Simulated assay, not measured.
Amino acid sequence: MIRVLLVDDETLVRTGLRLILNPAEDVEVVGEAGDGREAVDAVARHRPDVVLMDVRMPTMDGLAASEELQRRADPPKIIMLTTFALDDYVHRALRAGAVGFLLKDTEPRDLLGAVRTVAAGSAMLSPTVTKRLLTTFAETEQSEVEKFRRRLDVLTAREHDVIRAVARGLSNAEIARELFMSEATVKAHVSRSLSKLGFRNRVQAAILVHDAGLD
């Protein structure tokens, strides 16, 4: 069972999300919060697997809450929610460890699919809006690009190939087919690469590849 926490300052939005998720046999909404501070407390209380987090809220916004949660030993998977296609600070949340980004007008089946995807340990890199965010908010000077490229030097040539494929939003199965290796081998490469880079998830690796100008 996937345990989900809903975080939004609008009761109507939380109610709508609950109505979408509750019918699923493998998903349980374990709690709600109206702002980021309540969300941090609710995570400690309910221990959700996935948090659907609004970006703009009073008291503490979703970005600050996401950053605080990522400092914990075992943070939940966080999907950022917003009304805006290009929110000013979502890239900051992705860097802090959020694993997805959805617009609030996302189709119900896609919302449910996103919850299942991140709960299974994958990142949401395929949606067009996420790619737009990575493109828009990861612009850097050339000197910074070189610095990011040097961070990737710790990877072997094969790990480098795999991480660049991850940055393109490919699943392990798709990477295996493209690079002619087994899914188990791909999974091992991804795990070792994230460990070497000091990252928690695939989104952070994808951002680094983009910042290095290699996507």
Rank of each mutant, 00 (worst) to 15 (best):
R164F: 04
G169I: 07
E141M: 04
A114E: 14
R177S: 13
R151F: 08
N172M: 04
L102D: 12
F148L: 10
A157R: 10
E183Q: 11
D110I: 15
V166I: 13
A205V: 06
V145K: 07
T135I: 10
V203Y: 02
A167P: 00
P127V: 01
R116Q: 13
L194H: 08
P127E: 02
A96N: 05
E174C: 06
N201H: 05
K196N: 10
I175E: 02
D87V: 02
H160S: 13
S191F: 10
P127A: 00
R92L: 14
V90D: 03
L112T: 15
M124D: 00
R95L: 11
T130C: 01
G198W: 05
A205W: 03
R158Y: 13
A85E: 05
R177V: 04
L152F: 08
N201D: 08
R192I: 04
T140Q: 14
G198R: 08
V190S: 05
E146W: 14
L133W: 00
S195K: 15
T185F: 01
R149I: 07
L86I: 11
A93Y: 13
V203D: 01
E144T: 14
L134D: 00
R132E: 07
T106G: 04
G169H: 05
K147V: 15
V209Q: 00
R192C: 10
S182R: 04
K147E: 15
A93M: 13
L179F: 02
F137G: 12
A120M: 14
F180H: 08
P108F: 03
T136Q: 07
L179P: 00
N201S: 06
A123G: 09
L125E: 04
E183Y: 01
G169P: 03
D161N: 10
A123V: 06
